[in-house]
Design a protein around this nucleic acid. Structure first.
Length: 110
DNA sequence: AGCTTGACCGACC
DNA sequence: TGGTCGGCCAAGC
């Protein structure tokens, strides 16, 4: 018998860590980004790889283009669509290198 | 109780 | 500018 058995509406089906990650992604302001490592540090749980694993499986539910690696990049299959969002949001983005300018766009949670 | 799998990261060459 | 390496740790089996 678990909490989920007793209170199904309190559980989206996602593990607690995944839910925490997605909640943080949801508060990143338009035009800014956080890195995988930033999010793990903000949560004081897990690490960059765990955050990446959550984004890989559940990222489509949130503004996934606002989460990039420590080099300001996303996996190649997502770069095209991400750049459209960066245009709309005015995110500092180096088009030739296909990466966000972290110095200008990185957001720390404030 | 292991073992494997990652949208990772930093140090190093 | 690339490549390798070790460390990282939640989740699923």
């Amino acid at each position: 018998m678990t909490t989920r058995d007793l209170v199904p509406e309190a559980d989206t089906g996602l593990p607690p860590f995944a839910r925490r990650v997605l909640r943080v992604v949801g508060i990143i302001p338009a035009g800014r980004v956080m890195t995988y490592g930033d999010i793990a540090e903000y949560l004081e749980e897990g690490g960059p790889r765990q955050v990446g694993a959550v984004m890989s499986r559940h990222g489509d539910a949130v503004p996934w283009w606002r989460v990039v690696n420590a080099g300001g990049e996303l996996p190649s299959h997502l770069r095209g669509e991400a750049s459209l969002h960066y245009d709309q949001e005015g995110t500092p983005y180096d088009k030739s290198r296909e990466r966000v300018n972290l110095r200008l766009a990185r957001w720390g949670g404030r």
